[in-house]
Write a protein that binds this DNA or RNA. Structure first.
Lengths: 210, 210
DNA sequence: CTGGATATTAGGGTTTCTACTTATTTGGAT
DNA sequence: ATCCAAATAAGTAGAAACCCTAATATCCAG
């Protein structure tokens, strides 16, 4: 289920919106337009891949304000390309530092626009793939019981079963049972696979205090 | 050997340089100044922590040109804070996309400047720590013979010794010997440690966010 | 030529992990 | 109260890994 990406155009200038839509659709990309930032917020689907072409200056919620809001809610960070008619360097720098992928000043070349959109869509794609992997690892992790998590941490920390059993005050046999259960639930057949799964998916690591 | 960071000021405007130096030194930071980008290139030490305050427009090599050059040679990417007297949005966006940590337009508040410098120095510090760990791992890795590297890869891939021996067409006993040698040379006592060492140090990238 | 590093193999013993089965207890959820 | 998942634990057997010593062959450098 690889959804076709959508280029969201958020701009209050009707003529600009139509012009942008024409250019973007001319290369076969889907476009959805909003004349107010709030409209976008109300209707967008976090699971839909794509990117945002966002006007800086709009009545109501401004482009940068929308960016801040999207960053705050966190879920599904669509890449944002800002579009501005006036040269405001501090603003441009601020939104770039806040994670925007580009900041275009009018008038701009169609080629520049499309290039920027393509890059944003590529970024979104890799982000989503990463998130996907992560979600799957999290889902498996959620299946583990409290004890199993403790044992998992011991394994990843490189501790032997007997060490884990001593630390948790349970028998070696019990640790072995939990260990087998962990391997099965996490869907791996070797310790290195388990370690990789845990490390590359930002699952919590054992904090070895000393 | 934690060297004191140095704020490099690269600007052809003598008055500006003195003003910046005064502010930066007033909070106890060391400053070195250059009136030409080439001077900086000729004299800077990649091992010296710090950051660069870089004027955009200079006779000879411009600020962005220096940034490009530093990115090309790659080694020791000092965080760069650009300083500009004129509002050129496309330029600001370009250098930010190229990795600059900030872009200040004159006139700017001392507080803003110092805040930006502190952030750049923090970024540099974490980058260097990461590079340090990486270099140590690389050094250990370099000690391994060809065969040992092959066995290491097998281990990290989660293969059993007998599988590795079959793939390399050598006896199980030989694999065991190489395996022990690998663990010793890499300075680890368990497979999970080994996997972590390899995974977290195989590919390094400079950190750029806060 | 010789010493050192590397690669290869082996024996033998110890430790650890895995697989399979069985069984008791306990704390929630229905 | 009953049922179930989780935690606990034991046994047995075999596979795999670890540890130590030792031997042979090759190649390179001093």
């Amino acid at each position: 289920m690889t959804m076709e990406p959508i280029v969201y155009v958020v701009d209050d200038d009707q003529a600009m919106v139509e012009s942008l839509s024409w250019v973007i659709e001319s290369v076969g990309l889907k476009v959805k337009t909003y004349i107010r930032a709030q409209d976008f917020l109300d209707h967008y689907d976090p699971h839909q891949p794509g990117c945002i072409l966002l006007d800086v200056r709009m009545p109501g919620m401004s482009g940068p304000e929308l960016q801040t809001k999207l960053n705050e809610i966190g879920a599904s960070t669509l890449p944002i390309i800002f579009i501005s008619g006036h040269g405001d360097v501090p603003l441009a720098v601020r939104v770039m530092k806040a994670g925007a992928t580009d900041f275009l000043t009018k008038p701009f070349n169609d080629q520049v626009l499309l290039e920027s959109i393509n890059k944003a869509l590529r970024v979104d794609k890799t982000n989503r793939e990463k998130q996907q992997e992560n979600a799957q690892a999290e889902a498996k992790f959620a299946l583990l019981s409290h004890r199993e998590v403790q044992v998992l941490q011991g394994i990843v920390a490189g501790k032997q079963n007997k060490v884990i059993s001593a630390e948790l005050n349970i028998s070696l046999k019990t640790v072995e049972a939990h260990r087998a259960s962990v391997m099965k639930k996490m869907g791996v057949k070797s310790v290195p696979e388990l370690v990789k799964l845990v490390l590359t998916n930002s699952v919590q690591e054992p904090v070895s205090e000393e």
